[in-house]
């Protein structure tokens, strides 16, 4: 296929177009992915997550520079939220990364969540495949500003960075259960601000309290401090340390044979998503297009039936073998 050849050759125009078509749910794009899929699995994927304003985009920019210095090509997928009211979005992560715009070894693509709730966009999984086949050595995936439960990033990453900032002590308490559990590396960003040692102690305490089997493989999430990004020398040093830490984590995954379990997790999620988009979505689209859905909603409002009865009727109509 001509497109596959172009993407393999690293053609940005073809790749960005394909990602667009994947976002828009164009059928033909799906068949291109079928051809790309066997070629994937080479890139190292690093997820970056944390609350809004924590400095994720600035860190991604710093990491891009480090990976480029080490001779790696870098893809960036930066996700920002879609308005639930208008469907519009402002994708502003790029502002922090524009100095790499002309570097042909860097490909930055912004994605809007378009209703996805897990902190990513639906097309992220496939967009990673596209960048992978383009030959990007490292793919950095930046989530939307996250709160507690947006942990989809673990399904797509080999290494997850959780970015925290001082002065949100109460929030540390609040996010202990969700996002704090998914970190392979903690970053205390803006660490020159007051409260960074307190934050460090809180993370240490939380890790100390974790059940012993949590770190059975021998990896306890390290904490990397990053100070003011406007001080290029010290910021550059922290970025070097962070890049080394990411590399160490990857080596650990390989040495302990853990990479497989992360790849398996991604495969399982992709299958789940694919079934949803091949089975559930066409049925829903059909019901909406035929106007049937409105009648069903009215029936529910009139209490003439219940959602389960309606769903079972739909299943009988559209699925040959009952489940």
């Amino acid at each position: 296929m001509e497109k596959v050849k172009k993407i393999k050759a690293g053609d940005v125009r073809t790749a960005s177009r394909l990602i667009r078509n994947l976002e828009d749910g164009v059928k033909e794009a799906r068949s291109t992915i079928k051809h790309l899929f066997p070629l994937t699995g080479k890139a190292q994927v690093v997820g970056i997550t944390g609350s809004p304003g924590a400095g994720k985009s600035t860190l991604v920019d710093g990491l891009v520079e480090q990976f480029r210095k080490r001779g790696k090509t870098v893809g960036v997928l930066a996700v920002d939220p879609t308005s639930p009211f208008t469907g519009g979005a402002i994708l502003g992560d790029r502002i922090r990364m524009q100095r790499h715009a002309e570097d042909s070894g860097v490909f930055v693509r912004s994605l809007a969540t378009r209703g996805a709730l897990g902190g990513l966009a639906k097309a992220v999984g496939d967009a990673i495949h596209v960048m992978d086949v383009m030959g990007m050595d490292v793919i950095l995936v930046e989530t939307v500003g996250t709160g507690q439960q947006e942990v989809d990033i673990i399904n797509h990453s080999h290494t997850v960075l959780v970015v925290l900032i001082p002065g949100m002590g109460d929030e540390i308490q609040a996010i202990k259960a969700g996002i704090m559990e998914i970190a392979d590396v903690f970053v205390i960003n803006k660490a020159d601000r007051e409260g960074s040692s307190k934050l460090r102690r809180e993370i240490m305490a939380m890790l100390d309290m974790a059940p012993p089997e949590t770190f059975a493989s021998g990896w306890r999430p390290p904490i990397v401090r990053v100070e003011n990004a406007f001080e290029p020398d010290s910021f550059g040093k922290s970025m070097e340390e962070l890049t080394d830490t990411i590399a160490k984590h990857h080596e650990h995954l390989v040495a302990k044979d853990l990479l497989g379990s992360r790849i398996r997790r991604k495969a399982a999620v992709e299958l789940h998503e694919a079934i949803r988009s091949c089975v559930l979505e066409p049925i829903l689209n059909h019901l909406v297009a035929e106007g049937e859905i409105e009648g069903m909603i009215q029936k529910l409002m009139d209490k003439k039936t219940d959602p389960y009865t309606l769903a079972e009727e739909v299943a009988r109509r559209f699925l040959k073998e009952g489940v």
Binding site: G88, R94, A101, A112
Partner: peptide
């Protein structure tokens, strides 16, 4: 954004190449 578009904003001081 309010008109329903996806807007990519690049910030200031951009070269035509960028």
């Amino acid at each position: 954004r309010d008109a329903g578009f996806e807007v990519i904003y690049t910030g200031c001081h951009q070269t035509p190449e960028q």
